[in-house]
Design a protein around this nucleic acid. Sequence first.
DNA 1: TTAAGTGCAAAGGCTTTGCAGCATA
DNA 2: TATGCTGCAAAGCCTTTGCACTTAA
Lengths: 145, 145
Amino acid sequence: MRISRNYSKEMQGHPQTKQRHLLLGLIREANGHIDAKELFRRAASKDKSISTATVYRSLNLFKRLGLVDEKRLGQARCYYEIKHSPQHQHLVCSRCGKVIDFDCPLSEMVDKVKFEHGFIVTKAEVYLEGHCSDCAKEKKKEEHA
Amino acid sequence: MRISRNYSKEMQGHPQTKQRHLLLGLIREANGHIDAKELFRRAASKDKSISTATVYRSLNLFKRLGLVDEKRLGQARCYYEIKHSPQHQHLVCSRCGKVIDFDCPLSEMVDKVKFEHGFIVTKAEVYLEGHCSDCAKEKKKEEHA
DNA sequence: TTAAGTGCAAAGGCTTTGCAGCATA
DNA sequence: TATGCTGCAAAGCCTTTGCACTTAA
């Protein structure tokens, strides 16, 4: 007889390991805006033996389970964030690389594409690139000099 | 005495070569939605000796000159399109991978982030993922079956 | 003529995978 | 205890780069 294993709810049938726990915690702490490389760096500082393979495998699992969201920001970098963090979009400064969150009501847009194209939106991302207020000031200064 | 070279206007000081001409033509033909790999495939079918290095170098040049726009759609793939094609955004179907253009007035959003964050937008992208009308129908059928 | 572009092949990042050993439930 | 995760190292992608040759203007 096969005894079924007792999995954690969060992991939906996948065993909870100390690595996954650590990684999910770090992603949560990062509050959006952490990429695989940085996640590995932070994880390794708390657990020297962790490998990049585990980081990537865990990220893929989290994505599949819908625990984290993957976003492509700036120069093709992927950032990960916990899915249940409040819905927000990103401003990326092309001078200093700063990433700023902003609220963005998308419901109008979602309705519009449903009406015009019969398209059912399941995921929405807005990416605005430009100059943050600091860099905009710097730029002005440079132009006057 | 140094004789200045006679560069084409489009290339803004960079010599026009048959490779660049071919590539730009193919990007134009593709009317948005072509990635580096596919661009190389099509280019190679017209000029067997072209190399991937030239494709990537040309794409980087075109980006720098502002001739093409780079967009990240779907699974981290980069697509390229001629910049002067009318401003539009993308709907990506997560079932069949279809990419649909749609008009999307962004001026309100641009004003909002300027007012709220002092952020000056230079580039805006909206990415909506979901089910296109065909796949939405298919999905409904499956659910009733 | 000559600065710049090209092809080739090698190197660089990032991500995935095979395998043997380890650990969770 | 057994399934499935982990670390390691190797392999796989895609993209960039060094070098000698070629070409546009």
